[in-house]
Amino acid sequence: MDLIIDGFKQAFLLLIHGDPRVIQVVWLSLAVSGSATVLSLCIGIPLGSLLGLARFPGRRFIISLINTGMGAPPVVVGLAVTIFLWRNGPLGVLHLLYTPSAMVLAQFIIGLPLVAGFTLATIQQQDPKLRLQILSLGASRFQMVWILLKEARLPLLAAVMAGFGAVISEVGASMMVGGNITGQTQVMTTAIVGETSKGEFAVAIAFSIILMVLVYLVNLILTALQQRSREN
């Protein structure tokens, strides 16, 4: 019991005093996961829209890949990225392994199928006649897709939250491609694993609290948005 109470006490002290190491780790977590989420959105929303609106050879295959990717274990993604970035690997010359860039890449690969899959599902839920209606009002193809996505803004926001939530709480891939190097590639999840294995429960608990608060905030925003859309 003492271990837990003591751990919490120290964790609060670390948080209240704004321990520089804690701040550095939280900042890197947000930067890496934020960048990965933005990248996933930039590629995932157009990809999901294309798959939802166009018919072309190989479409079904790509959809099956996305569906598989939505449930892919991060640790396997981590392994794949590590192999590619390994010194003698195909992209070894870039020297990206054990850098935050490698972590962004791995988290992007985890987030992309989530965002693309959510976008695809959202577009497919819309009445197919809505596209004809928008075109008949005089929209170009590009304007039509833009209006459809604007129409789907709430479910798409859910996709953003889901993507961010997934990558910020993922540990396997970040650990493998980042290496959990203190001051360089350590993020909250890898820090929790590292500190726990050293018996440093206070630091692990502090990071866990921050992570939980973040996840809670994400869910709070989601719930608020869903409630608002229901009232409309």
């Binding site: 009445d127 006649k129 809505l130 004809l132 209606q133 075109l135 008949s136 009002l137 005089g138 170009s140 209006i147 604007k150 129409e151 409309n232």
Partner: peptide, 19 residues
């Protein structure tokens, strides 16, 4: 086609309104 669509108008059985 786009130019002519902008001279036409269509109303369907379902109202198909935006949010």
């Amino acid at each position: 086609v786009l130019r002519l669509r902008r001279r036409f108008a269509v109303a369907f059985q379902e109202p198909l309104l935006l949010n």
